[in-house]
Design a protein around this nucleic acid. Structure first.
Length: 724
DNA sequence: CATCACGCTGTTTTT
DNA sequence: CAGCGTGATG
């Protein structure tokens, strides 16, 4: 017989005073202002455990988090703490909640419950296709890129502002075509409705609409979820705040947790002031502050506190810790991006010598492509790593291609997917695919009968195969695993034709099959894929080792921690200074971003930035010209940070060496492979990247030839020159 | 439909 | 520079 044992938790021992009061408060609204590393997750986990021990049914608790992975991990922890039933807690993102509710109630807003969810790429594709339908044959200027268009639309939706407001403030360059943009937005909305499609923004907008207009839905949900908890509340926007208000309006058992300093999603309408408006909706709310930090050493916290002092819109919270430590965070000026990569690699090798493991170390950055140079250097030195953030697995072309075949089975009206899969076939492009779709719609042709298309013989050739696939996919109760397998078999020839790197992509399709095997229905599988990026690092090269370094965007690293954090800080210097996006307007958010990155560190924090950059073409656009411009790193007080420089060499356009061989700190190692090179060897010049012809002359002289201008540079001091 | 030459433009982060 | 859109050609 199995013993039903619920562990007695000693809450008083496990939690500090502030945490305890948040955990044990039973009814009523609570606002928890929790600094980085102050045990925010711990508090939520213990609260779930507490509620369950008090007899609240797990499924009556709703835990809204920023990613579904975060929810899952928290519930797992709560289960281990007290009782396995904590796994039954309803947890997820606002978008996944919205999706669930809308699958039940879509008819009330004129959608069919089988609507498809559009991701960013779908949105762009739709916008692109609809441009041709916009009024006026002679447009005053060319249209913005479809990625820009969807960004404008999404921003307007998330910030709840009119298109004109958004365009006036953020995209004034496109104001001449404002009427056309507005028309396009209108067509886009009609298009979604007609084709039973919802984008991410629609999901939460429609959920709010349902709640606003239907008292019965409000009541049903309030009954279903009697205790509501929201994590990362500083990153919610007004739409999400409204949803919370509706969900909690009757029972008022709402606990929101957040940190204003960590608000880094303003681009999608998040506003940290949301947190301070919570008491406006719930006037009886208790406010609890968590200020003791359990993660970082004091020197790291002193730096992050100083960092937030620079923010003009700061709040009163000040973090302290009992973890002492004498290592002051380092700020390393490496001159160039190339040296930045070399520095980080050498520093990591030194750390490994000192006994750190790769799994204790992470390198964080603002944008996915900022780590490209570093990735090359890591690969050269055979340091294994996994990368998170940036480009999405789900957004890669081959995955979308394959899934399109499954989507049309679920939602026959999903003309985006129809277009996508038809265009794969030879001799069918944009025009013909639309014609085929029209024909199918008019004659109500079943997917499996698509081979009856009255076109040329050539076209039908491809369609016959497609019809066969559609026939087998339409089999009732086909398991998702089998469906992906069938589609992959059909898609394989296209894959090989379209992509040079098809072996890697083939592997990823196999991963998709195994992901599908965890689902019983195709619908559930597809919904989950749209709303929950795969948890494993599928978008990186396969790892053959357990121990590896983490590379991550700061956005994807939220809520995580490592012993040692490197932050590489780049500003894309290709743009003239007035267009550089590190301007005063965005400085506030950049500060918060650095704060989030820095507070992930437990023991060591190293910020690395290429201070001067390599300027070889000061006028016009330069190829590999990037500049670190971290005025706020330089402006930090002397005692909270230690500045060093790590610079191999600086050269002027005429080839003169300005500075060289200035190595500081203990990370230095002797030059590696110079002896392997003979004078005259063609090499990849490390400062200018691949594609620039360079010739090795001697140990301290390298000749660089630029294709157009024929400028030659002499160079000295680099340690890894590669023969080509 | 597929391909090529030419001209223009240039902000990242995620559900 | 590079990636994209546009318009012209096979």
């Amino acid at each position: 017989m199995r013993l039903m044992m619920s562990t007695k938790i000693d809450y008083k021992k496990a939690l500090n005073k502030a945490q305890l009061s948040a955990v044990t408060a039973l009814d009523g609204p609570i606002l928890v202002i929790a600094g980085a590393g102050s045990g925010k997750t711990r508090t939520l986990v213990y609260r779930v455990a507490w509620l369950v021990e008090k007899g609240v049914l797990p499924r009556e608790i709703l835990l809204l988090t920023f990613t579904r992975k975060a929810a899952k991990e928290m519930l797992e922890r709560a289960s281990r703490l007290t009782n396995k039933r904590c796994r039954e807690v309803s947890g997820g993102t606002f978008h996944s909640l919205a999706q669930h509710v809308l699958r039940e109630e879509a008819r009330r807003i004129g959608f069919s419950p089988s609507f498809s969810i559009m991701d960013r790429a779908d949105m762009e594709e739709a916008a692109h296709a609809l441009i041709t339908e916009v009024d006026g044959e002679k447009r005053p200027m060319r249209f913005p890129k479809s990625s820009t268009i969807s960004a404008v639309f999404s921003k307007a939706a998330n910030m709840e502002k009119s298109l004109s407001e958004i365009m006036e403030i953020e995209y004034p360059q496109f104001l001449p075509i404002f009427p056309q943009m507005e028309h396009l937005l209108q067509i886009y909305k009609e298009y979604k409705r007609k084709n039973n499609l919802m984008d991410y923004d629609d999901l939460i907008l429609f959920l709010r609409l349902l709640l606003k207009e239907n008292e019965d839905i409000r009541l049903t949900l309030a009954n279903r979820y009697r205790y509501i908890m929201v994590d990362e509340y500083q990153d919610t926007n007004t739409i999400q705040a409204d949803i919370i208000r509706y969900l909690g309006s009757s029972h008022r058992n709402v606990m929101v947790v957040g940190d204003d300093s960590q608000s880094i999603y303003s681009f999608r309408g998040a506003n940290f002031r949301n947190m301070f408006e919570f008491p406006d909706y719930f006037p009886e709310a208790r406010i609890i502050k968590l200020e003791e930090n359990y993660r970082s050493t004091q020197p790291i916290l002193s730096m992050t506190n100083a960092l937030m002092d620079q923010a003009t819109q700061k709040y009163t919270k000040c973090l302290f810790t009992r973890r002492s430590g004498n290592e002051v965070p380092l700020a390393i000026d490496t001159g160039t991006e190339r040296d930045q990569a070399v520095y980080v690699c050498r520093a990591i090798e030194t750390l490994l010598d000192e006994g750190w493991a790769l799994r204790d170390i992470a390198v964080l950055f603002r944008a996915g492509y900022h780590s490209f140079e570093l990735e090359l250097e890591l690969a050269r030195r055979a340091i294994p790593f996994a990368k998170y953030g940036g480009f999405k697995f789900m957004e890669s072309a081959h995955i979308k291609d394959l899934l399109a075949h499954l989507r049309v089975i679920i939602n026959k009206e999903d003309i985006l997917s129809w277009g996508r899969l038809l265009r794969l076939i030879r001799n069918i492009g944009a025009a013909k695919s639309q014609a085929i779709i029209e024909w199918m719609k008019k004659g109500d042709v079943l997917p499996a009968r698509i081979d009856k298309w009255p076109g040329s013989k050539k076209e039908r050739e491809g369609l016959v195969k497609l019809a066969k696939l559609m026939g087998s996919l339409s089999t009732a109760n086909l398991r998702p695993e089998k469906a992906v397998d069938l589609a992959a078999e059909y898609y394989n020839p296209f894959l090989k034709e379209r992509f040079d790197d098809f072996p890697r992509r083939q592997l990823e399709l196999e991963q998709l099959i195994s992901m599908a095997s965890r689902y019983r229905g195709l619908r559930a599988f597809l919904d989950d894929l749209s709303l929950e990026p795969p948890a494993s690092p599928v978008d990186v090269r396969p790892l053959d080792r357990e121990d590896y370094l983490t590379l991550s965007t700061i956005h994807s690293a939220k809520g995580l921690e490592w012993g040692v954090i490197f932050i590489i800080w780049l500003v894309d210097g290709r743009f003239p200074p007035e267009k550089s996006f590190l301007n005063t307007e965005s400085l506030e958010e950049e500060l918060r971003l650095l704060y989030v990155g820095a507070t992930r560190a437990k023991d060591k924090l190293i910020m690395v930035y290429p201070g001067q950059g390599v300027v070889y073409n000061p006028e016009g656009w330069g190829g590999n010209y990037r500049r670190g411009l971290s005025s706020f790193i330089r402006a930090l007080p002397q005692d909270v940070i230690e500045h060093r420089s790590f610079v191999s060499a600086h050269i002027s356009p005429d080839g003169a060496i300005l500075r060289s061989g200035l190595f500081t700190g203990s990370m230095d190692r002797p030059a590696a492979n110079l002896s392997e090179l003979k004078p005259g060897d063609r090499i990849n010049h490390p400062a200018f990247g691949a594609g620039v012809i360079a010739r090795f002359l001697s140990e301290d002289r390298v000749e660089v030839i630029f294709k157009d201008r024929g400028i030659k540079l002499l160079h000295l001091g680099y340690t890894s020159l590669e023969k080509v």
